[in-house]
Amino acid sequence: EVYKVKIKIERVLPNGEKVEEEITIEVEGMSEEELLALARELAAEPGVRIKEIEIEKLPP
């Protein structure tokens, strides 16, 4: 199964400015739980906050 994972994050820059970013990846052969863990890892940097995680199962 192939999933499209869209992660919206908010990053706080050293000057205090907040910037929103969106990361989209396609992943194959992982469960939804593994995808959530991967998304959290991607956003685990200091000053980064996850705003939204969207997981979509793509048709075969």
Rank of each mutant, 00 (worst) to 15 (best):
I23C: 04
V19S: 05
L35Q: 02
N15P: 01
E20Y: 15
K6L: 13
P59N: 13
K18N: 05
E21D: 10
G16A: 02
P46S: 12
E10N: 02
L42M: 14
A37V: 14
V5C: 03
E45Y: 14
S31G: 14
E22C: 07
A37C: 11
E1C: 05
L13F: 13
I53N: 00
K6Q: 04
V27N: 03
E52P: 00
L38P: 01
R40K: 05
P14H: 13
M30Y: 15
I53F: 04
E34K: 13
E54I: 15
E26N: 07
I9T: 03
R49D: 06
E54L: 15
K18P: 06
A39F: 09
E20Q: 14
A43P: 02
R40S: 10
L38H: 07
R49Q: 11
K4M: 07
I25Y: 03
L13K: 08
E45L: 15
V19M: 10
I55G: 01
G47P: 01
R40A: 08
A39D: 00
L36Q: 08
N15R: 02
E56K: 12
A44W: 14
I53M: 07
E34H: 07
E22Q: 13
E22V: 10
V27I: 14
E56C: 05
E56F: 03
L13V: 02
I7G: 00
E33H: 13
I9C: 01
K57M: 15
E54C: 07
L35V: 07
N15H: 03
K51L: 13
I50L: 07
E21Q: 13
E1M: 11
L38K: 09
V12W: 09
P60L: 03
Y3C: 05
V19C: 08
E10H: 04
L36G: 05
R11D: 00
A37L: 11
N15W: 10
E22S: 07
G16E: 01
E52K: 08
E20P: 03
K6M: 06
K57R: 05
K6C: 03
E21S: 12
R49I: 12
E22Y: 11
G29D: 07
E20T: 10
L13G: 09
E41H: 13
G47A: 07
G29W: 08
T24I: 11
I7T: 00
V48A: 04
S31M: 08
K18W: 14
I50N: 00
P59A: 12
T24P: 01
E41V: 14
I7A: 01
N15T: 12
K6P: 00
E32R: 05
E56Y: 03
I53K: 00
L42N: 02
I25Q: 02
K6I: 14
E20F: 06
K6N: 09
E28L: 15
I7R: 00
P46Y: 11
I55H: 02
G29P: 06
L38R: 09
E17S: 14
E32P: 14
E21W: 15
R40I: 14
S31I: 08
A39I: 09
P59M: 14
K6W: 07
I55D: 00
K8G: 01
T24H: 09
P14Q: 05
E33G: 06
A43C: 05
E45R: 14
P14L: 11
E32F: 11
E26Q: 12
I23E: 01
I53P: 00
V5W: 02
L38D: 00
V12H: 07
E34A: 13
K18M: 15
E34M: 09
A43V: 15
E20V: 11
P60W: 00
L13I: 03
P59D: 04
L42A: 06
E34P: 03
E28D: 09
E45D: 09
K57T: 05
E52R: 14
A44S: 10
G47F: 01
E22L: 09
L35T: 12
L42E: 02
V5Y: 03
I50H: 00
I53Q: 01
L58D: 03
I25M: 15
M30N: 11
I9P: 00
L38I: 13
P14I: 08
V27K: 06
E28Y: 10
G47D: 09
E45G: 13
A44Y: 13
R40D: 04
E17H: 14
M30Q: 08
G29F: 07
V2D: 09
E45F: 13
A39T: 06
E26W: 10
Y3L: 13
A44M: 11
L36S: 07
E32A: 12
K4Y: 08
G47S: 09
G29R: 05
E22W: 08
L58T: 11
V2A: 10
P14S: 07
L36W: 08
V2P: 05
V5T: 01
E21A: 10
I23G: 00
E34L: 13
E56W: 03
V5R: 00
V12A: 10
E17F: 06
A43D: 06
E20M: 09
I9H: 00
I25C: 03
L36M: 10
V5I: 07
I7H: 00
P14F: 03
V2C: 04
M30D: 04
E20K: 05
E32S: 12
Y3G: 10
K6T: 07
E20G: 03
P14W: 04
R11P: 00
G16T: 01
P46N: 14
L38F: 12
I50P: 00
K51M: 15
E34G: 12
E20R: 05
K57S: 07
A44G: 14
E33L: 15
I9Y: 10
E17L: 09
L13C: 06
E41Q: 14
A44F: 12
I50W: 02
I53E: 00
L13N: 05
E17Y: 08
V48T: 09
I50S: 00
V27P: 01
I53A: 01
R49V: 10
V48L: 13
I55M: 06
K51Q: 05
L58W: 14
A43H: 08
E21L: 14
A39W: 06
A44Q: 06
E56D: 06
I55C: 03
S31Q: 10
A37T: 13
A37M: 09
E28I: 09
K57P: 06
I53C: 02
E45Q: 14
I23M: 15
S31L: 07
P60F: 00
A39K: 04
N15F: 02
K8Y: 12
E34C: 04
G47K: 03
R11Q: 01
G29V: 03
E10R: 02
E32D: 11
I53R: 00
E45T: 15
